[in-house]
Structure formats: C-alpha cells, structure tokens
C-alpha cells in the first residue's frame, strides 16, 4: 500500500514538473533568447537599487515620457525611491498638468504630489493617431505585462540592429525595409518604436556615465520598481511567514507523533 502511494506521488510530481516545464516554455515566448542580467532585485532577498531606479526615472521623464504614459503612478510614489518630499517637488516643479478651474474651464496648473504622472496624450485615440495608428503602451506595469519581464525590457532597449548591419537572410526572412526598426528581441522583430536610447541621451546628475547600456539598465530597474513597488515588503513578509509556518509545522508534527504514539 505504501509503495503504491509512493508511485502515485512520484507520477504526480513528474506530471507537475512536465506541466510547469510546458508552461515555462510558453512564458518564454518562443525561441528568442533574452539577455539575462543579474538584477539587484532578483532572488528571495533582492531589493531595488534606489540610485539606479532614480536615474531610471530621469531616463523615463526625459525620453520615454514623450510617448509613453505611466497612468498608475503618482508623483508621491517617487518618495518611495528614497527621495525626500522637497526633492520630488523640485523634480516636478516644471510639470504642468491639465485641470478644470472653478468655472469648469480647462486650465494647466503645476503638478502636485497627489497627481498621477502626466500622460503625453489626452487619450488613447490621440496617442494612436500620433503614432501611426498604434498607441504606445502604458508603462506602469509593463515589467509584469511582458513575458521575460525586466530581461525583455532591457533586451528591447539594447536590441536594435541598424539596417546596414542586418544579414541579407534576416532582411529577406523578416521582410525588413530601410525605414523599419529591427529589434533582436521584439516578437516579429519589426517594431514601431525607433531606437529610444543612445549614449549620452541624458546627463545624469550623479555623474554616472550615460552609456546606452547604463540607461537601458537604469530605466529597466525603474520600470521594475514601478510595476511592483511593494516587492521588498512582500519578500520580507514572506521570510517571516515561512519561518513561522515551519516552526508551527514542526510543533504540529511533534504533537501528531505523540498523539499517534500508541497507535502505530
């Protein structure tokens, strides 16, 4: 009886393992292998690199925000990146957001901490109209909304290949023309977005050298944080919960053994 139970368990475990392998294959989104970078926020104890994410906000604000909204984010959220209230206020002091005045007329006023990040377009239709018919996706939870997550975002940002560097075979296979943007990691490779980042696209306040790789890595870390600002609390709580459950499970096992002592 014991043996059959074990067999059932083993077949169940094998089955589950193959099932999760199958699911993982799908999650990887085809055959394109993403660059794998050792992120600061990875692993059960990983945390966000605050200064990288702050630089990433600068990249977002100065480059990405021209087309991409982050409508789930509030300016007050930036304080969780280690900035003081005063620093955030000075970061946003030149941002004007739309509002209505007391007479119901549309006005622009300076952004407040309780405002959401200003969107570049008034609505999705306008965003699509300004971008060849396809609205640039909102970036609030983009790190969770793409298979591969941060690795995909980072890959996408550094994965552009200029037309003259493509092999004739690639040009033929993916039907690339001179005006197309070819990206190694974008599904289908032809992407509407022109290469957004380049060396020295921004000037970092903390003196970090703004290479393409640095910018891509920084903005990826900012977007990863934006997608899940509570990740650190989640992992912290998790360690405590699991330690507690282990202790309780140990005690329960001891109780169970002593209760059953005369029956086995």
């Amino acid at each position: 009886m014991r043996k059959s139970m074990k067999r059932l368990l083993v077949s169940g475990a094998l089955a589950l393992a193959s099932l999760s392998a199958g699911a993982a294959a799908i999650a990887a989104g085809g055959e394109i292998k993403l660059p794998s970078k050792q992120w600061h926020f990875q692993g059960p104890f990983g945390t966000y690199d605050r200064s990288a994410a702050q630089r990433g906000y600068q990249v977002y604000q100065e480059v990405c925000a021209a087309c991409h909204s982050m409508s789930l984010m509030y300016y007050r959220n930036l304080m969780a990146l280690g900035l003081t209230e005063g620093q955030v206020k000075s970061l946003i002091k030149d941002i004007q957001v739309p509002d209505l005045n007391d007479d119901g007329q549309p006005i622009e006023r300076p952004a407040k901490l309780s405002d959401r990040f200003k969107s570049p377009f008034p609505n999705a239709l306008a965003a699509a109209a300004a971008n060849n018919g396809k609205a640039p996706p909102d970036l609030s939870v983009i790190a969770k909304a793409r298979a591969g997550g941060p690795d995909y975002l980072y890959g996408l940002l550094i994965g552009y290949v200029p037309y003259d560097k493509l092999t004739p075979q690639q040009i033929k296979e993916f039907d690339v023309s001179k005006d197309d943007n070819f990206n190694k990691y974008f599904p289908g490779h032809k992407i509407g977005m022109a290469p957004p980042l380049a060396d020295d696209k921004v000037t970092y306040a903390d003196g970090t050298k703004a290479t393409l790789d640095q910018e891509a890595s920084d903005v990826t870390q900012f977007l990863a944080w934006a997608a899940e600002p509570h990740m650190e609390a989640r992992k912290r709580t998790g360690v405590r919960v699991i330690l507690f459950l282990l202790a309780l499970a140990g005690l329960m096992y001891a109780v169970k053994r002593s209760v059953w002592a005369d029956k086995h």
Partner: peptide, 17 residues
C-alpha cells in the same frame, strides 16, 4: 497515552503559536 506531560506541553505550545 505514553507520556501525557510531554504531550500536554506540546499541545499548549502548538495552541499558543
């Protein structure tokens, strides 16, 4: 049961936790 004291202690500890 074999060792009621130990068991009671375990029960109380488990219940409290």
């Amino acid at each position: 049961h074999s060792d009621p004291t130990r068991r009671d202690f375990l029960m109380v500890a488990t219940g409290s936790l």
